[in-house]
């Protein structure tokens, strides 16, 4: 049994990790009151930059770092336009996605058909020797571990630290935060850059570990799913983590079910992950006042000190 189940579970982990990165990063961005719909664009730029650097240098570390930097630089464009020039966040985010897809195609032009050796697996000493569980939970590439650590850190920082309090204050009421002396623009810029680097890491995971290759548009809509997961998670990083695994899990299980010849229409099975997301969304948002409490009050609003 375990030789059948373990590969399935391992595939679920690889399918979910890019979503975890992107969604957890976006949680921070939205907590600071910024709605960045450009996740897909930042992801794909991260993917192409990571892959290009990986191919050129053969260094996994450099590739991962540049993936994060690529996502961050893309996010900076968004930050500059929305925070400095006060452009509409929704429109700018959408434009960022289109821009990212185009830019990545341009950067990646010479890298189509190249291959990268992939990320090395790291085993945690001792723990990796536990039968079944060891190979399942404690032998992964660095990015999988990093995604889990990131979720823990984000949850901790947002809820238990002064920095988290400032971020949330800026997201809930930017005028109040401004009036007590916090720089709304810089806090938000920091969050946007962080979100960008997380999306970049998600993209890097796609092009370095998930399918170590570069083809245009390889994120294939995962940025949008990450955005939906943020709402699904009612702006909590750990819930976004479980949402990503739920989504990834159902996607993978339905593929395996088809292989076994389960007699359910494949269209229905393909729909399942989305359906499950909607159902959970309905369940957790049935109490609308609690839902409203979770959503940052100033989400998507531009801030200017003179307003």
């Amino acid at each position: 049994m375990s030789e059948l189940v373990v590969p399935v579970l391992l595939t679920i982990i690889t399918a979910s990790t890019p979503l975890v990165f992107a969604a957890a990063g976006e949680v921070v961005v939205e907590k600071s009151g910024v709605l960045n719909l450009g996740v897909e664009g930042m992801m794909i730029v991260g993917a192409v930059v990571a892959f290009a650097v990986g191919v050129k240098t053969e260094s996994a570390t450099l590739a991962i770092l540049s993936g994060a930097t690529g996502g961050m630089l893309t996010a900076f464009i968004f930050g500059f336009l929305t925070l400095r020039l006060l452009a509409n966040q929704v429109a700018t985010g959408l434009a960022l996605t289109i821009f990212g897809l185009g830019l990545s195609a341009l950067i990646g032009h010479g890298f189509v058909g190249k291959t990268f050796s992939g990320l090395p697996k790291i085993g945690i000493p001792l723990l990796e020797q536990i039968p079944v569980l060891g190979s399942l939970l404690f032998v992964h590439d660095i990015l999988v571990f990093l995604s889990v650590i990131a979720v823990f850190l984000i949850t901790y920082v947002l809820n238990k630290t002064r920095l988290g309090l400032i971020i949330r204050a800026v997201g809930e009421n930017h005028h109040a935060a401004h009036s007590i002396g916090y720089s709304v623009v810089w806090v938000r810029m920091g969050c946007i850059l962080f979100g960008g680097s997380m999306a970049g890491l998600g993209g890097a995971y796609l092009s370095l570990a998930y399918t170590p290759l570069w083809v245009e548009g390889m994120t294939a809509g995962r940025g949008w799913i990450a955005l939906a997961l943020v709402v699904f998670a009612s702006w909590r990083a750990w819930r976004a983590f479980f949402g990503a695994y739920l989504f990834g899990g159902i996607t993978i299980i339905q593929l395996h079910a088809q292989g076994f010849g389960v007699d359910i229409a494949s269209q229905f099975l393909s729909m399942l992950p989305y359906l499950a997301t909607i159902v959970v969304l309905v369940l957790i948002s049935n109490n609308s006042s609690r839902m409203m409490l979770n959503a940052p009050a100033d989400l998507g609003k531009s801030f200017h000190a003179s307003d």
């Binding site: 399935v8 595939t11 399918a15 796609l206 290759l213 294939a220 996607t251 593929l255 292989g259």
Partner: peptide, 12 residues
């Protein structure tokens, strides 16, 4: 076209 999903199906 979805490299990730195509790879997952292959793994399955």
């Amino acid at each position: 076209f979805d490299p990730g999903k195509e790879a997952d199906a292959t793994k399955a």
